[in-house]
């Protein structure tokens, strides 16, 4: 389990996080939601060990994070940032192989290459392996980066669970790629017992893919729990400070829309199509 206990983060006497307690369980996808400045990224950075909490502790698999060496941490958890700009042209396989960095010596072993290739195949980018990263499209880049972090936590370190932390992993992606990236992450959580945390902005994506949701506001954890329990129109409206209502799609799903129905001004969030929650195993390639 990756746990934050009563974590407070202060920068120049301003509290970015206030007494946050959160646990990421192996085998689940936990979505962190909240408006800008709510402390989502700060919380994620605390969970990765990038930020030292002013108070409280973060533990991974029962051991305090500051007691881990950088390499030990890297073997147990991978982090994917929004967008990665490369200084030099590496090809896709080389990028994926970087995920094996904490596991291998200066030269990757055959096993590492196999894992990197399998990770690329999993995200549907096997055919891009020898393509130069700067020549890839935005969606391809995002999936190659996903392959990299997947390669990093491909095998659990010993018998302990591994974690995947995603900071707005789909922010720059189109609809289809959002679905595929989150689908892969969720499947990995369910099938491999990986603990996945993702900062998301799209309520509907969270509703479909997250097992649990943590809702943040003003540096505090507003509510946390199973997706269906937390993602309720009234709670969301309160948290985001704008009217949000849920529209039943009939087949057991619902979509969240911004705006009050009474005034007739309905602004739909980006995800217009939400089906029943089935596993999305598609990993289609860009054209």
């Amino acid at each position: 389990m990756l746990t934050a206990e009563s974590v407070t983060v202060k920068v120049a006497s301003r509290a970015l996080l206030q007494d946050v307690s959160l646990a990421v369980h192996p085998g689940e996808l936990l979505a962190i939601l909240g408006e800008n400045g709510a402390g989502k990224s700060t919380l994620l950075k605390t969970l990765t060990g990038d930020l030292q909490p002013s108070a409280g502790t973060v533990t991974m698999n029962g051991r305090r994070l500051q007691d881990w060496t950088a390499t030990q941490r890297a073997r147990a958890r991978a982090v994917l940032a929004q967008e990665t700009h490369l200084a030099f042209a590496f090809d896709a396989l080389q990028i994926a192989l970087l995920g094996r960095y904490p596991h291998c010596d200066s030269t990757p072993a055959k096993r590492d290459v196999e894992i990197a290739l399998a990770a690329l195949a999993l995200v549907g980018c096997a055919h891009l392996q020898s393509q130069s990263y700067p020549t890839l499209s935005g969606g391809e880049r995002a999936r190659v980066q996903l392959a990299r972090v997947l390669a990093q936590v491909w095998e659990n370190a010993g018998d302990k669970p591994s974690y995947l932390l995603l900071d707005e992993p789909v922010a720059s992606l189109d609809l289809a790629h959002r679905e595929s990236v989150l689908g892969i992450a969720r499947d990995l959580a369910h099938e491999r017992g990986l603990g996945v945390v993702a900062i998301l902005h799209d309520l509907n994506l969270a509703a479909v893919y997250a097992d649990r949701v943590a809702l943040m506001k003003d540096g505090r954890l507003r509510s946390t729990g199973r997706t269906d329990d937390v993602l309720r129109a009234d709670v969301l409206s309160d948290c985001f400070g704008i009217p949000i209502r849920s529209i039943d799609t009939g087949a057991g799903g619902c979509v969240f829309a911004v705006g009050s129905a009474g005034r007739g001004r309905v602004h739909y969030t980006e995800a217009g199509r939400i089906d029943a929650r089935g596993p999305i195993t598609t990993a289609r390639s860009d054209s």
Partner: peptide
């Protein structure tokens, strides 16, 4: 010469390299 491996990781940026275990 011994810095080749961490410098490879650094191609991703400082924070991602840190997440890969590079000091």
């Amino acid at each position: 010469m011994r810095m080749a491996k961490p410098l490879n990781a650094l191609v991703l940026g400082e924070a991602p390299a840190g997440h890969l275990g590079v000091d």
